[in-house]
Computed example of a mutant assay.
Amino acid sequence: MNILAQEVIELPYSTDSEVKWHTEEKEFYSEIWETQVVTNVSVPRLEIYKANNPNGTSVIIAPGGGLYGLSIESEGRQVARWLNDRGITAFVLKYRLVPTGVDGIKEITDESVNNPAKIGERVKPVLPLSIADGLAAITYVRTNASDMQLDPKKIGFMGFSAGGAVTMGVTFNYTLADRPDFIVPVYPWMTVVGDYEVPENAPPMLVVCATDDPLQLAKPSAALYMAWLENDKNAGMHMYSKGGHGFGMKTQGLASDDWIAQFYSWTLTEGLTTISSN
């Protein structure tokens, strides 16, 4: 459990899935990814980070990790703390992941070289569960909004890479009750999402990616932006020439380092948040 989260709550989930976990959830520092990770999430949970002076806006954050793990710091808790400083309450979502051995990061790294098709096979039955966890997170925040001094009409959903796939899965499967009020897919893994149609009442969207993403996510990210544009939906995009993949809150000395400040400016422009008085 992360001691910096004020609270960690378990989300409701269905247990009738054929996916079974045999290794306990584990948080550790991955030498391969050079960051803190979580693997083998079988029970979805929300880590709650309340702003000292909440302005009513909240963001649910879905870290990336190929659905084999969660880059919990760089694409989760660090984002939450940054948002907290600006009055935005944040929720880091631990969504269900592919069941792996003790080191899921090593598994996906090895498979990406030796058997890439296997990744798709293992992810396919799990992604619907991860998306269901994302929808459950929105329901929780909206249901408890008044208790947390939050506006139930200013709930955003931000996801990185595989978390971006969860973000878009949420966007393509919501009902009125669990619709996100704005979405921020950051270098989203769109190929795993498959074909999609822009919802009739699609939420405002800001896409973030880098042209030099080694996983070739720039084109599908641009296509996602164009889909919103062609359907007359509110959309913005920051496509950085350099940044690579998985930059999250890392400092690289590149323009992409400022993506989160650009996101914040966008929320102010769109009236999705307000400047918090400290």
Score class of each variant (00 low, 15 high):
117 A>F: 07
189 W>D: 08
192 V>M: 14
179 R>E: 01
203 P>M: 05
46 L>K: 08
100 T>G: 09
201 N>T: 04
139 T>L: 08
124 K>E: 08
194 G>M: 06
36 Q>E: 13
105 I>F: 01
197 E>Q: 15
164 G>K: 10
212 D>R: 10
131 I>W: 05
114 N>I: 08
79 V>I: 15
210 A>Q: 06
198 V>D: 04
273 T>M: 05
190 M>E: 10
230 E>I: 10
172 F>K: 07
270 E>R: 08
152 P>D: 03
173 N>K: 14
97 L>T: 03
140 Y>D: 04
260 I>N: 09
88 I>D: 00
27 E>T: 12
15 T>V: 13
20 K>Y: 00
50 K>C: 08
14 S>I: 03
157 F>W: 02
138 I>Y: 05
120 G>P: 14
55 N>D: 05
148 M>R: 09
39 T>N: 05
24 E>K: 15
22 H>V: 03
91 F>P: 11
222 A>C: 08
134 G>K: 06
7 E>D: 13
224 L>K: 07
214 P>C: 11
70 L>A: 12
105 I>A: 02
223 A>F: 11
12 P>D: 13
99 P>Q: 10
140 Y>Q: 05
12 P>L: 08
174 Y>F: 10
55 N>T: 02
199 P>C: 03
240 Y>I: 01
71 S>G: 12
22 H>N: 12
39 T>L: 00
69 G>Q: 15
215 L>H: 10
119 I>M: 15
143 T>V: 03
172 F>H: 07
78 Q>D: 14
45 R>M: 11
169 G>Y: 10
152 P>A: 11
225 Y>A: 10
170 V>K: 07
31 E>D: 14
134 G>R: 06
31 E>L: 13
222 A>W: 12
240 Y>F: 15
154 K>V: 02
152 P>F: 03
199 P>S: 08
5 A>P: 03
189 W>P: 00
68 Y>W: 02
103 D>N: 15
3 I>D: 12
7 E>Q: 15
108 I>S: 08
191 T>S: 15
216 Q>N: 15
208 V>N: 01
99 P>M: 07
158 M>C: 12
87 G>R: 06
47 E>Q: 15
64 G>H: 04
230 E>R: 14
89 T>K: 01
148 M>I: 01
200 E>C: 09
36 Q>Y: 03
35 T>G: 02
41 V>Y: 03
66 G>W: 05
195 D>A: 14
258 D>Q: 14
